[in-house]
Design a protein around this nucleic acid. Structure first.
Length: 424
RNA sequence: GGAGAGAUGGGUGAGUGGCUGAAACCAACAGUUUGCUAAACUGUCGUACCUAAUAACGGGUACCGGGGGUUCGAAUCCCCCUCUCUCCGCCA
């Protein structure tokens, strides 16, 4: 959620930035917000004055009773009646205005930061970096879903039988490869200063709301209505919520966490070859990194996170590129997002394996995640997160790019974790 | 799931209708003292919103798990919800 004070002071800037995100009606919505906020302030002032008056009367009545002047006290009691009528009326007005204001604010996305390019969709994203060699595969090379069946390491049909499409069963060396990657990612994160946490895989409504999954993306999460819980679409949700309603000391910042979790996504409306095999799943594994920092340092921290992710891909010997997402392709809550894509040689396309974002104060405002600055003033912190990394497409690329006639080569960095040099 | 107890500021914990935004202690922070550390002493020490016609001090309102009610007045009384603890049951 954007901060109302910021909107008031930077109306034109806010409208202009929302334009970069192709947000429609920015101008009228922002003006509506400001008008409602004016109403809110006036009503608040009026209500406070009446309450102050009522408090004054109540004190006086107490004094009079103590002095035994009950007749005078009764007189004043009658007066308080009027106050209560007005108080009730204004109170209802105020909560209605506040509700309306909040509803509108929830529909306004985060402002893209100054580096975000304009654009409508994926085709307008900016490639800011590319490295690694695109492998030349031998003539009989195939896509990962064929490899999975050939080596009997990931069974999609079996998962369909047990649960449904998008819930694969990892078998034998496939299961081991999962564990190897998870441990590799966690260890690397640990070396780079990220503290590991293991969060719950279900969250309550307050948590889902605080990180922005609700109300914007309700249909994306699996829900358990009986208990009011949601299956997490990413560890970002529970991990960031660790810090909900807290005030951090500046000396504790930056906070850097990593967490392995399974992730659950309904992916409603997806279809076609994009969702084949490991390309899109309803349940998958991911190591997430989450950081909290001051506004002054958050962009440095973003670089730290990007470097960490790039390092992982390098060690996995995967060719990758980094995209700076354009306004139109960014998520609702993000101020800037870099996507990491690895090249999948058999599918002959780039697969998104990580997304690293700075949310600035947008999430922190809903989270009430603040810190005390050097002047001891309480301010909203910046939150950042990224995948480091999501497994399925990494597995897809590893299998496809490293396939040979005699088996699938495991990259050096992973061999100790996997316990072998090849899948045969 | 059954029975009971409880929820107060960073922590412990007082407070059962007005003088309590909340004692005391601890922690934390700043300063004095000190060769350094420690100790001692002094001071500061919740959050949000509104307002201020000197953004520095100030004034007001709300908040003692959450929501509603009684009352002129509620942390304190009543109702509902949530959560925690203890005992029992069940169980990886």
């Amino acid at each position: 959620m954007l901060q109302i004070g910021f909107i008031r002071e930077n109306r034109d800037f806010v409208v202009e930035r929302l334009g970069v995100k192709n947000f429609s009606d920015a101008e009228s919505k922002i003006d509506n917000v400001i008008a409602l906020d004016n109403q809110r302030r006036n009503t608040q002032t009026e209500l406070d004055n009446i309450k102050a008056e009522a408090n004054r009367l109540a004190k006086e009545i107490g004094m009079l009773f103590k002095q035994g002047k009950s007749a005078e006290a009764e007189e004043l009691k009658a007066k308080t009646g009027e106050c209560h009528v007005k108080e009730k009326e204004l109170g209802e007005q105020l909560s209605k205005i506040e509700g309306d204001l909040r509803d509108i604010l929830l529909t306004i996305p985060n402002l893209p930061s100054k580096d975000v390019p304009c654009g409508k969709g994926a085709e307008d994203n900016e490639i800011v970096h590319q490295e690694g060699e695109i492998p030349q595969l031998y003539a009989g090379a195939v896509e990962h879903w064929t490899l999975c069946a050939k080596y009997d390491i990931i069974d999609f049909e079996l998962g369909t039988k047990i649960t449904g499409a998008g819930f694969p069963v990892y078998k034998s060396q496939g299961a081991k490869l999962q564990r190897a990657l998870i441990n590799f990612f966690l260890d690397e994160a640990g070396k780079n200063g990220f503290t590991e946490v293991q969060p719950p895989l279900m969250v309550n409504e307050a948590s889902a709301l605080a990180t922005g999954q609700l109300p914007d993306k309700e249909g994306q999460m699996y829900s358990i209505p009986l208990d009011g819980f949601y299956m997490i679409p990413t560890a970002e949700v529970p991990v960031t919520n660790i810090f909900r309603d807290t005030i951090q000391k500046q000396s504790n910042l930056p906070i850097s966490c990593c967490a392995y979790s399974q992730c659950f996504r309904r992916e409603a409306g997806s279809y076609g070859k994009d969702v084949r095999g490991l390309n899109r799943l309803h349940q998958f594994d991911k190591v997430e990194i989450v950081c909290i920092d001051t506004p002054e340092h958050s962009y440095e921290q973003l670089e730290v996170m990007k470097n960490h992710v790039a390092g992982l891909l390098r060690k996995l010997e995967l060719p990758f590129r980094i995209l700076r997402l354009c306004g139109g392709d960014m998520s609702f809550t993000s101020a800037i997002t870099y996507d990491f894509e690895v090249y999948s040689a058999a599918q002959k396309r780039w697969l998104e394996v990580s997304s690293v974002s700075n949310f600035e104060t947008y999430q922190a405002n809903r989270l009430k995640l603040r810190y005390k600055d050097e002047n001891n003033k309480t301010q909203l912190a910046h939150t950042l997160n990224g995948s480091a990394l999501a497994l399925p497409r990494i597995v897809a690329a590893l299998l496809e790019n490293n396939q040979t006639e005699s088996g699938i080569r495991i990259p050096k960095a992973l061999q100790a974790y996997f316990g072998a040099e090849t899948i045969i």
